[in-house]
Write a protein that binds this DNA or RNA. Sequence first.
DNA 1: GGCATATTTGACACGATGTCAAAAACATGC
DNA 2: GCATGTTTTTGACATCGTGTCAAATATGCC
Lengths: 199, 199
Amino acid sequence: MRPREFDHDDVLRIAFDQFWRKGVRGTSLSDIARDAGVQRGSLYNAFGSKEALFLQAYERYAGDYLLALQKALGAGSLRKRLIAFFDLTITNFRSGSPPRGCPTTRGLMELGAAEGEGLDEDARRAFANLVSRITALVEDTLSTGAERGEFSGNPAAAALHIITVTRGLAVLERAFGDEPQLRKIAAHTIDLVLGRGAR
Amino acid sequence: MRPREFDHDDVLRIAFDQFWRKGVRGTSLSDIARDAGVQRGSLYNAFGSKEALFLQAYERYAGDYLLALQKALGAGSLRKRLIAFFDLTITNFRSGSPPRGCPTTRGLMELGAAEGEGLDEDARRAFANLVSRITALVEDTLSTGAERGEFSGNPAAAALHIITVTRGLAVLERAFGDEPQLRKIAAHTIDLVLGRGAR
DNA sequence: GGCATATTTGACACGATGTCAAAAACATGC
DNA sequence: GCATGTTTTTGACATCGTGTCAAATATGCC
């Protein structure tokens, strides 16, 4: 067999960077091929299609991101953990210049859109999968917080509410690009969930 | 002058329907031209570009939608008004078959994406404008609720929080398509904001 | 009726996706 | 070492979408 002339993982990183900056539809395989020093045809041969390439690149990102979130949710009081969670979330949205927003939310709204196209359904599942796993992480955090008496309420419902807020923050980030505003909303949400004035 | 052979408003309605169903990038001007019985060139002549056509169609929608929201927020107790607000929001997301999601959120994430392209900035402003106006409506509602003793807290912060949740609901709708889940989150949010068990 | 003006129409250029067959590069067995 | 088979690379091609343009067309107005 003829060996591949490019590094699979390098291409995924380069491709994801472009997708994150310019969106999936706004990025052409020619762009990626040029950036990666690979022929366009080789990408089709290796990945099948632009969406398939994006999905692989996305899942690579999702794994890393989930680990980072897990770390953020693992230390300190419940309040501190939630603060770290929102901080990582918002910092991720605001990374790059100009800020690139949330890859999950952007990818989902871009690809989870079309009706009856097979691969978009795969994409939707990939995004839903990450969101579900993040929700589970938050729910665990709240549950242990409940055991320690730091939280009273329904952990499942509260986790879903928190995740909904983070998705909303991803949208507001695109609309207003106002990072202090995002952080205020995050702080307010934590106060609401933990009970205003709780510490 | 030669008269136009198509109805401006008809085209906007037909175009917005397609954009809403298939996304802006997923809809071609050929599609719209065929559906509207108009030549593609005429659309370019009348609207300039696909994005410009979308923006006009969107702002037409936004006006109608804002009026409907205003109505929903105008009657009954604060809790009832918030329930009506969320109900209209979610019902709007779930309209059509298959459900078409939130046009604002979808359009924003699709068009507010690219870097340094002039018209996308217009789009971003259009979306931000609607979101701001909805936020203002909710804030007014909460303020009058505060006057009546139905709400204690910061109306501005609470309104922003509520709007963030509705944007998050738009995202979760795409990810999971689970309407009962959306409604549970909405109910939970109302409880949180008004104070659990308040009526 | 004739002219100015705006719209329509079809051709064109360009870029993007995706397919395909031929060429090229390696691994393996002889 | 060399032939063979397999996979990747490469360039050509078909198709579709956006956007531009000039020529043709239809109307309002003088």
